[in-house]
């Protein structure tokens, strides 16, 4: 795991865990279109999953631990690979021109940092309610609807930028994970790239639909 290839594999696997989480998260978010109740029930169900076999919040906590571990490992691998890359080129080029679009080079690291910062805000806002007008002791749906109120248009904007960034990150990341885990080849490249793009697009649309609907008053 300490080798550069090992770290890449860590990034791929933890990335896959996070993509799985994002898909479930997105599906949950869409419940807001079925009404506040439906959304709140979903949030509650998450906490009472497998009850009474397991105590309250067991499954969710396990999921959260896995998720946090993935985030930490993903960032650890990214940072150590970035550091390694910096050490591998101590003297920079005077002129450097990308021949592959430069997309992956720039979007992944800066995008990753942007996303990490957003996640902090996002947790403070909608999970812990610290920066949410409704505070912590409120129903999840209330927090969500209040959070994306038109008066707080800049939150929606922030969210929009971040979600697009996630999409761009995954467009390369998903494909890259296949490559890293050795499942890609020339014949599959096209399909894999298309899959990555489609997945990213679905996530972007799925995540943006609720806040935009709230901001523009479609969901009240």
């Amino acid at each position: 795991m300490a080798s550069s290839n090992g770290k890449k594999a860590v990034m791929a696997v933890t990335g896959a865990v996070m993509v799985g989480f994002l898909l479930l998260h997105m599906l949950g978010n869409l419940k807001i279109f079925l009404g506040r109740e439906s959304f709140n029930d979903y949030a509650h169900a998450l906490r009472t999953l497998l009850e009474p076999i397991a105590p309250y919040r067991t499954v969710l906590t396990i999921l959260e631990i896995v998720l946090v571990a993935s985030v930490v490992l993903h960032m650890w691998a990214a940072i150590s690979l970035a550091r390694r890359a910096r050490q591998a080129r101590p003297v920079k080029y005077v002129a450097k021109k990308s021949q592959a679009g430069g997309y992956a080079t720039h979007i992944m690291r800066y995008g990753g940092i942007t996303i990490a910062l957003f996640v902090v805000w996002h947790l403070l806002d909608l999970t812990f309610g610290v920066v949410n007008p409704k505070g912590f002791d409120s129903a999840p749906a209330d927090r969500m609807i209040a959070g994306f109120d038109l008066s707080r248009w800049w939150v929606t904007l922030l969210y929009l930028v971040a979600v697009v960034m996630v999409g761009l990150h995954l467009r390369h990341g998903v494909w890259s994970a296949f490559q890293t885990l050795g499942w890609a080849n020339r014949a599959r490249y096209k399909a894999l790239r298309a899959t990555a793009s489609l997945l990213s697009a679905v996530l972007v649309v799925g995540f943006l639909a609720p806040p935009l609907a709230i901001t523009f008053g479609v969901v009240k």
Binding site: N5, K8, G102, A104, H172, F178, Q179, L181, G182, N185
Partner: peptide, 30 residues
């Protein structure tokens, strides 16, 4: 450094070595 699948290498390779060689390397390595 480690590979981040940017594809810059294959773009400048004078012999056009394809990128999926890296996937095969990863597979054998894992």
């Amino acid at each position: 450094g480690g590979c981040t699948n940017t594809g810059e290498c294959t773009a400048v390779c004078p012999k056009g070595i394809p990128l999926d060689t890296i996937a095969r390397m990863n597979s054998d390595y894992l």
